[in-house]
C-alpha cells in the first residue's frame, strides 16, 4: 500500500511535468500588437502598418472590411480605413485631423475572431492643434466581438512568448520556499531535541532547496534578459534572491568547516534558523515596501496580472504541484542517503 502511494506521487510528478512541458510549449499565444510603422504621422492619408505577434488574428481569405482600426487621442476616437489584412498585420490609411486632444495615439484593432487588440502610444502626430477632433474624423465606437480564441496563453506587452517561463521560474521558487520551510522546521526541532535525525533532514532540505534556488536564479536571469534587456538588474527582489542563495551556500560552508565536530548539528541548526528568517525578510517583506520591477511586488501581493487567465492557470497549477513533488522526491533521496551514510559510519 505504502509502496503504491510512493510510486503514485513520484511518477505523478514526472507525468505532471511532462504535461506542463508539452502544454506549455505547444499552446499558442494570443495575438497582440507590437508595433506601428511608421510611428510618426506627418502627411494626410498616410498609410501605417500595424504588426502583431502570437497566433494569427486573420485568415488569408479574410476581407479588410471585416476589420476595423480606431486611433484614440485622449478620450476621442479617430477613424481610419483598413486597406490590407494579412495573418499578422494590417495596413491602414489615416487622415490626420487638424486638431486633437493629445498627439500620442493609441491603436485599437477590432477583429472578427480574435477580439480587440490594443497598442498604447502606437503613433505620434508631428503637427496638430490642441483641441477637439472635428466631427468628420470621429469614428463611431465599434462593437467589440467576443473572441473565439480557444486554448491560448494571454498576450502581455514585453513578455510576449516568454510568458511560458512562468511555468518554470515561479514554481521553482515556490519549491525552494517549500523545502527551505521544511528545513527551518527541522532545524527548530533539532534545537529542541538535539537529535541527528532532524539535522539530517535540515541538511537534505537545504541542499535540495539550493538546487532549486539556483535554477530559479538562472530562469529569472534568462527572463530578465528578454523583458528588461539585461541579464541582471539591481532590484530588491533580485538582490534578495541572490543573497538568499549565498546565505544557504554559507550553510554548506559552515558544515564543511566544522568537519566531524559533534556540535555541527546544533550550530548548523542555529545558522539555518537565522538564514530562513533572513529569507522571509529579504524575499517576502523588503521587496513589497520598495520600488521593484518584479511583477507581484511593489505593494500588490500575488501576481494578479497572470492569474486572470484560465488557460494559463490550467498549466500553472500542475507545474507548481509537479515541481513541488519533484523537489520533495529529491529531498527524500538526499535524506535517505544521509541516513545510509550515518548508519555505515556509526556501525
Amino acid at each position: 500500500m505504502k509502496g503504491g502511494w510512493n510510486w503514485f506521487w513520484k511518477g505523478g510528478s514526472i507525468l505532471l511535468l511532462a504535461y506542463v512541458i508539452v502544454r506549455g510549449f505547444s499552446t499558442p499565444l494570443q495575438p497582440g500588437l507590437v508595433s506601428a510603422t511608421p510611428s510618426q504621422l506627418t502627411i494626410a492619408g498616410q498609410s501605417v502598418i500595424l504588426t502583431a505577434v502570437g497566433q494569427p488574428f486573420a485568415e488569408t481569405e479574410d476581407l479588410p472590411e471585416a476589420f476595423e482600426v480606431v486611433l484614440r487621442s485622449g478620450d476621442q476616437l479617430i477613424q481610419t480605413e483598413v486597406l490590407e489584412v494579412s495573418p499578422h498585420s494590417v495596413k491602414i490609411s489615416v487622415n490626420i485631423p487638424p486638431s486633437m486632444p493629445s498627439r500620442a495615439l493609441d491603436a485599437y484593432l477590432f477583429t472578427p475572431a480574435s477580439g480587440t487588440l490594443f497598442l498604447g502610444n502606437a503613433c505620434f502626430v508631428e503637427e496638430a492643434a490642441k483641441g477637439d477632433v472635428p466631427p468628420a474624423f470621429i469614428a463611431g465606437a465599434p462593437l467589440p466581438k467576443a473572441p473565439e480564441l480557444g486554448f491560448s496563453f494571454p498576450y502581455q506587452p514585453n513578455i510576449m512568448e516568454s510568458i511560458r517561463n512562468l511555468l518554470w521560474h515561479v514554481p521553482m521558487w515556490f519549491a525552494m520556499f517549500f523545502i527551505m520551510g521544511l528545513g527551518f522546521v527541522a532545524s527548530l526541532a533539532q534545537l529542541r531535541t538535539d537529535s541527528i535525525q532532524w539535522d539530517m533532514r535540515a541538511e537534505a532540505a537545504v541542499k535540495t532547496g539550493l538546487v532549486f534556488g539556483l535554477l530559479g536564479l538562472a530562469t529569472g536571469s534568462l527572463w530578465a534578459r528578454w523583458t528588461w534587456g539585461a541579464w541582471w538588474v539591481s532590484d530588491p527582489q533580485l538582490n534578495g534572491a541572490l543573497v538568499t542563495v549565498l546565505l544557504y551556500s554559507g550553510y554548506l560552508i559552515l558544515r564543511a568547516a566544522m568537519g566531524d565536530d559533534d556540535r555541527v548539528g546544533r550550530l548548523a541548526a542555529v545558522y539555518n534558523v537565522f538564514a530562513f528568517v533572513m529569507l522571509v525578510i529579504l524575499l517576502m517583506v523588503l521587496p513589497r515596501y520598495t520600488e521593484s520591477l518584479h511583477p507581484g511586488k511593489d505593494g500588490n501581493p500575488g501576481f494578479n496580472s497572470y492569474d486572470l487567465d484560465n488557460s494559463l492557470r490550467a498549466v500553472f497549477y500542475p507545474a507548481v504541484i509537479g515541481w513541488g513533488a519533484l523537489c520533495y522526491w529529491m529531498y527524500t533521496l538526499r535524506l535517505r542517503m544521509n541516513r545510509c551514510t550515518h548508519h555505515l559510519l556509526s556501525r
Binding site: V53, G54, H88
Partner: peptide
Amino acid sequence: ALLLLNSLEGFFFGSGKAHVVTGVAL
C-alpha cells in the same frame, strides 16, 4: 518581418522550433 522584430517571437512562432524545444525538454 517577425524574425527581425524580435528573434524569440520569430523563433517560436515562425519556424516551428517549439517542437524541438519540447522534445529536448522532455
